[in-house]
Design a protein around this nucleic acid. Structure first.
Lengths: 190, 190
DNA sequence: CGGAAGGTGTGACCTACATCACATTTAAAA
DNA sequence: TTTTAAATGTGATGTAGGTCACACCTTCCG
C-alpha cells in the first residue's frame, strides 16, 4: 500500500472527506525517505512540520543535562510525531525526532495544517480527533507510570505493541519506560 | 465576573466567534454549583459531560486496587475536566471527578459538543486548540516525572500554580506528584 | 575482513522513596 | 462546645531501581 492509501485509510476511519478534498489534503504533504539513525528534528532547531509515518519507526525523545535520554514516543506506521509544543508555539525544539529504522514519512507543515483546517471543516475535525486520542493515551501512560512498576509497564508496552520487541533495542525501551537499561535487563535475566 | 463572561474570555482568547455564535454556544451549557467534597463523576458510572470550572477547584483522580489515589489534574477556573476517554468512547469512568472546594461549573454534554462542533467550524477549532494544549501539558508532565525528583516536581508545581499551596491539602499534592504524603512532608521538615 | 561502535548481561554497592506505626494538630460536624 | 475525622510530622526499617565497572557479543561500515 502506498503512502496516499495509508493516509487515506487513516483519515477516513474517523472523518468523511470527498475524494477531491482528500486529494487536496494529500497534496499538502511531502513524502520523504530517511535512513536509520537520520535526524528529523534536532534539539534547539525550529520546528515547522509534523510527520505521519508510512513505514519504519521513529522515536521522539528528550535528553537532559546529564545526557540521559527519555523517549516520549515510538512512532510507527499511521502514527504522527513532532515536537508539538515547539510546532504550535513557534519555539525551539526541546524534543528531538529521529529514525530507529529506515523510514518513509509524510511531512505536513504547520502553516499548511492551519490553512487546510481553516478551509475544510472536516479536516479540522480530523485533527481534533487525532489530538484527542494522543491526549488520552498520554494521560493513560502517566497513570501507568505512577501506578505500576517497571516489569508491569514493560509487559503492558509489549502487549500493546509486540512489534517493538524485535524492532527496537532494549536500551531504547528502557529509555521509554524511564528506567535504566540494567534494571530492564535484570527483569528476566539474573 | 459571571460564568458567561469567564467562558467568553476563555474562548475568544483563541477563537473568533460572533456574539450570536457565542450565545448559542453558551446556551448549550448548564451552570451548576457544587459543595466541597461533592462527587461529579464516580468510578464506573457513564460519563456524558465535560466541565468548565468557573470558580473553586476540582480534582480528577484514579484509585487503584490497593485504594491508593493518583491525581491527574487539579482543575481550577478556566480549566476543563472530565474522564475524556470514557466521555469520547462511551465507556464507564475509570477516572473520577470531585470538588476540593465549593465550586461553580459549566457543564457541556458530549452530544452537544459534537453537535456544535459540526455546526460551527470555529467551535471545532476551539476544541482542537484546547485539546492540543492539554496534550502538550500532559507530555511535559510525563517528562518531568521521568526526569526530576519529587522536590523539583513539587516546586515546579507550586511555581506554576501558587494558589494550590493554600487551596489543596498536602496529601492531595502528594497524590498528584505520585509520592507518599510522608515523603512530601519530609522534603522540608525533618 | 577487521576494527569500532553499539547493544547486552551481571556483580557490588548506593539512594530515593515506600511502608508501618504512632503522636500531634487542625478542621469539620453534630 | 464537644466529638470525630482529616491532615500532618517523624522515627525505624524495607526495597525497587540507580550507578559504576567490566565482560562479552553483535552489527555495520571503511
Amino acid at each position: 500500500m502506498d503512502a496516499k492509501e495509508v493516509l487515506k485509510a487513516h483519515v477516513l476511519k474517523n472523518t468523511e472527506l470527498t475524494d477531491e478534498q482528500f486529494d487536496y489534503f494529500f497534496s499538502l504533504f511531502e513524502l520523504r525517505k530517511f535512513k536509520k539513525g537520520q535526524v528529523i528534528i534536532s534539539e534547539g532547531s525550529l520546528v515547522d512540520h509534523e510527520y505521519f509515518v508510512i513505514y519504519g519507526c521513529l522515536k521522539s525523545f528528550f535528553i537532559n543535562e546529564e545526557l540521559k535520554m527519555f523517549i516520549l514516543q515510538f512512532a510507527m506506521p499511521t502514527w504522527w510525531a513532532s515536537d508539538f509544543e515547539a510546532l504550535y508555539n513557534g519555539t525551539k525544539a526541546k524534543i528531538a525526532l529521529d529514525c530507529i529504522s529506515d523510514a518513509e514519512v509524510l511531512c505536513l507543515s504547520n502553516a499548511n495544517r492551519e490553512k487546510i483546517c481553516r478551509e475544510i471543516h472536516s479536516v479540522e475535525h480530523f485533527f481534533r480527533w487525532r489530538t484527542n486520542k494522543g491526549y488520552v493515551a498520554s494521560q493513560k501512560r502517566l497513570l501507568s507510570f505512577m501506578n505500576n512498576n517497571v516489569k508491569f509497564r514493560y509487559e503492558e508496552l509489549l502487549k500493546l505493541y509486540p512489534e517493538l520487541y524485535n524492532m527496537v533495542p532494549k536500551n531504547l525501551i528502557a529509555a521509554y519506560l524511564g528506567v535504566s537499561r540494567e534494571t530492564l535487563s535484570r527483569l528476566y535475566h539474573t
